[in-house]
Design a binder for these strands. Structure first.
Lengths: 229, 229
DNA sequence: TCAAAAGTGTTCTTATTACACCCATGG
DNA sequence: CCATGGGTGTAATAAGAACACTTTTGA
């Protein structure tokens, strides 16, 4: 084999950290591996990238095969390429994270997965490959992202309460926030529309429902902001 | 060729955006390509990654072959993998940026380069491959980084003036800063040590020289901060 | 009537901004 | 003596942090 050929004895994959929010906790969608290596272990959903496929397309494909979802929020984090990260050969992987509304998710066992299920982010067991490290890096990037631009629209149902929004921020940032200060700040951005509707069927005073102002949401995504809480 | 084999008909490379600061402007070290494709065009220094080489090691190697420098600041940004980004085949590249003191740099024509030289970041001509896009992304990441942790130590000589430090921030962030407010803020961090030395040989009132407090610098790098200017 | 979460303002402290003049040196 | 950049403080404004009680509903 010529030297040049040896450069082409490697493959690349994408791995996707799919975040969801169930109303109180930030979750990640993991699969149980159906084949060696690491058969039976929990892992991030991922696949090899086809030779004529863009990286982002591959990440979208993995997501769609697993969840049936298209057009969701997806962002590349970085590449992981330690020589021995894959036991069967040199495989570098490009990590993405995506944000999905858990209610839109309908389980679809994909070719690369036997079982997919939601897991709480914190205190996770050991995952296959270097996936703990990948997950950790994606979480860090999400935590940075949430301070620069709004992401609630991607993770919350169309109508939500301020407490749900606050819990979303708290579970992403792993911190507690002051209720009054949070409301003051988020409402002062004019990002939310009061729907003049109430929660129903809860065993306490019902909360007002809000939705995002789409125009303003887009502006914030594009121009960014600093959201110190 | 089997389907599995076709996954291994691809290669990966690293490309390195090497930033330097000449005392007034932020610069990037570019090479003139000595071989096709894009022969004669300016490009980021980069190389294929050896089959048994870690990505970061490859980025360090490119940097050292070009500049002779080891142990400098180096950070991965992301992967670029559009199907047609390389005219000769499927090559995805992992982009890094590094920060060097321009005075430490001694030109070393590497195998992959005929000429290397510093260029101002803004208003660059068209580069080979997708290198304009890569450079732009690396600059964005540097701009974010500089708000989270100090980077002056990597780019400035051991002794520097407050005005030099301010010009560094201004050229990275592409903005103008108020002199008094900048000094107030940076000095209040206790990050700088007054050396009780002065500039000499300048045709104006000589400036005080400072150096970084190594311990405190390390703390800030690890714990981060929010540096809004 | 109890439990549970919703909703609501003010004060204090801290950080940010805007702004203009005199000083020390080399040529 | 002139040109050049170095060095300094204050007042006004804005943002952030801390904090406790009343309301509404279902069980």
């Amino acid at each position: 084999m010529s030297e040049v050929d040896s450069f082409f004895k490697s493959a690349f994959s994408v791995d996707n950290v799919i975040f969801g929010f169930d109303g109180s906790d930030l979750k990640v969608l993991l699969i149980q591996r159906g084949a060696p290596p690491f058969k039976g272990k929990l892992a991030l959903p991922g696949d090899l990238v086809y030779p004529n496929e863009n990286l982002e397309t591959a990440a979208e494909r993995v997501l769609e095969q697993l969840t049936g979802l298209r057009g969701v929020y997806l962002e590349q984090v970085k590449a992981f390429g330690a020589v021995n990260r894959h036991p069967l050969g040199r495989v570098i992987t490009i990590a993405y994270y995506s944000l999905v509304k858990t209610k839109d998710y309908t389980p679809m066992p994909a070719s690369f997965a036997q079982v997919a299920s939601w897991h709480t982010i914190h205190h996770l067991e050991e995952l296959a490959f270097d996936h703990n490290q990948i997950l950790h890096n994606c979480l860090l990037q999400l935590q940075q992202r949430v301070r620069m631009a709004p992401i609630g629209f991607e993770l919350l149902p169309p109508k939500f309460t301020l407490t749900e929004l606050q819990q979303l921020y708290e579970s992403i940032l792993e911190t507690e926030l002051d209720k009054r200060n949070f409301r003051k700040k988020i409402l002062s951005m004019n990002l939310l529309e009061d729907l003049n509707e109430m929660q129903a069927g809860v065993a306490h005073r019902p909360a007002k429902l809000y939705q995002f102002d789409q125009e303003r949401y887009k502006q914030f995504v594009e121009r960014g902001y600093s959201f110190d809480l």
